[in-house]
Design a protein around this nucleic acid. Structure first.
Lengths: 345, 345
DNA sequence: TTGAAAGCGCTAACAG
DNA sequence: CTGTTAGCGCTTTCAA
């Protein structure tokens, strides 16, 4: 037999009503505190509720009012150091509004995303915060068709009705590249994240913008496609070395790729920043623990998570009807891996 | 007005029944596939369901069968590098059994814990996985009284009916200290985690066990109380230095405290491992990215998360009735911060 | 094998 | 201001 559901304490509104000698409607009113009720009855009901240790049953409530007070949060992988702060921001904001957050890791797999979307819909979540992993029209269409409020995190998706929150990736990449150029670098290699994601593509654009702006020839041989993972950063650096193309700096599309690249360079006896300057993106906590301290572009990840929920809740409550795109501005964090502050060379 | 709940697609079992020209009971049976039904009707119902894009409403189901297919996961802070792997293990295991996991961060605050426990109970979660932060009899009693299956993660709590999963912290601390002793160290400082937590207290015991075993005098002046945070590791090292007591090694109760300590030592010009050897605990991912690579005691965190849910589900389904204590065995990971493999001195 | 009907615990008309 | 009552969408007896 399953765990005992006919529990010691399964006290309902009905029990409270009986004890307080009122109707269940009155109990409901008092507990929800919206309609006016006489203080006398209120007192009696509250007392009865306390004596019986009454705890409302939210699932019944959810069924009745069609509002589960829960939201889904879909991300690729909480073990990726980028996400904990995001998740924390989401959770803290959700708590304020009394929403439960259901966490889903998809590993960036399209079919996992789809499964979770349906799963969350079955649970009748009031909204979904979604970090799409690969540009997938189908899941976006699915999400749209469900008629649940959605906010897109970190990654823009074209043609969706949903609101979104992200950082200006293009600007960030521009700043990173500009910084390297100002350090006197001219042969700046680039390791891209997944170019199918807006964050990946936008950072690539920013890199090119900066080269163009400073009249530096874009050299395709210095551009590598990674996948936002440590391994892909390492591999890109290795390919770069083996290709024997000259370079004096690397801009990696996120911090763990930057670290992967540095590890690889070190293995080949190349020093960072003395021989090659490296800049990452995101400013994960590790960036200040790693040696050399990582120069990087900071995204306000926690705030992004918070803002996403703020937006989502506004959509859920109907305070906001049309979609809105919140774009945070990135910040350059100059540390050791790019040679620090001094204007070298 | 709130978000449109009278949605385009709010198709219920009733709609399906009408379209397939059967009763709702039949639809329910077919969809749940337990009772026998004629293949003819089954086909008709399935077709209708697909045509209408029917998606079951789990909240109605939950109300009826008193089973929400969701579990609560209470941790101090997802931003603490120890937890992402734990959470991922929990989530992956929960997915297999089709449970939603509701994430709660308490920052180790007792009253937050209490709030979340009640919150989760209102949501009628089927079980709770709980990483208790400070030894608090009240919340434990509350959890017990709720009659919800509970499994304790990482930290043992005396006198609770719940099952638990943890690592043998005492053994791990013994191994760490032993390793330092075998490296020739005799003045081994210790930075404790919160001694109110079993994990904190057990690691302290293991440290003392090892000293005793090797007939090294325990010196209270070398023992510091931290709080499992980077800052407390840094502070402990600083106090140690300022106290001017001699020491040749530090065993910190977790990796981020170890890193905090090393950062502090470095700031004072003391080299690790040349001047002082350092060992941590947990083997978070950062341990292999930090320089020097951190010697530490590995806990199989992901597996612990998985196992916790396995246990929790067994309790929920009634497969397991009495509580069970799963204890994983730790593993010594020898890296640079303790001077590596060679038997120095 | 199938259908009718009761009811999970709650909210919200509606009537008084 | 308070009570009666009708469901929310589903599962599950109980009869047929």
């Amino acid at each position: 037999m399953a765990y005992d559901k006919e529990n010691i304490r399964n006290v309902t509104i009905k029990d409270v009503a009986k004890r307080a000698e009122v109707s269940i409607a009155t109990v409901s009113r008092i507990l929800n505190g919206k309609d006016r009720v006489s203080p006398l009855l209120a007192e009696r009901v509250l007392l009865a509720a306390k004596e019986l240790q009454y705890q409302p049953n939210d699932v019944a409530r959810a069924l009745k009012i069609k509002e589960s007070r829960s939201i889904g949060l879909i991300i690729p992988d909480i073990e990726n150091p980028f996400f904990p702060a995001l998740v924390r921001g989401v959770q803290d904001a959700a708590k304020i509004h009394n929403y439960a957050v259901i966490l889903c890791n998809t590993d960036g797999k399209t079919d996992e995303e789809k499964k979770y979307i349906q799963f969350l819909y079955s649970k009748r979540v009031d909204g979904i915060a979604f970090t799409e992993s690969v540009d997938n029209k189908k899941n976006i269409a699915l999400l749209d068709s469900l008629g649940i409020p959605v906010v897109l995190l970190d990654r823009r998706v074209e043609g969706m009705k949903a609101s979104g929150v992200s950082t200006d990736n293009r600007l960030g990449a521009f700043m990173a590249t500009k910084h390297l150029i100002e350090k006197g670098k001219r042969r700046i290699a680039f390791i891209s994240g997944s170019p199918k994601l807006s964050s990946g593509a936008d950072r690539a654009s920013g890199y090119q913008d900066a080269l163009l702006h400073y009249s530096i020839q874009y050299d395709k041989k210095l551009a590598f496609i990674g996948a936002f993972t440590y391994e892909s950063g390492y591999a890109a650096a290795e390919n770069l070395l083996l290709s024997r193309h000259q370079f004096d700096a690397i801009f990696a599309s996120n911090d763990i790729m930057a670290i992967g690249a540095i590890e690889c360079l070190n293995k080949y006896g190349i020093r960072v920043p003395e021989d090659v300057a490296v800049v990452g993106f995101d400013d994960i906590r590790l960036a200040t623990w790693y040696k050399p301290l990582l120069t990087t572009i900071r995204q306000p990840v926690y705030e992004m998570g918070q803002y996403a929920i703020k937006l989502l809740v506004e959509h859920i409550t109907g305070e906001r009807s049309s979609s809105y795109e919140k774009i945070f501005v990135p910040e350059l964090m100059i540390r050791q891996s790019s040679g620090g502050l001094e204007e070298s060379k």
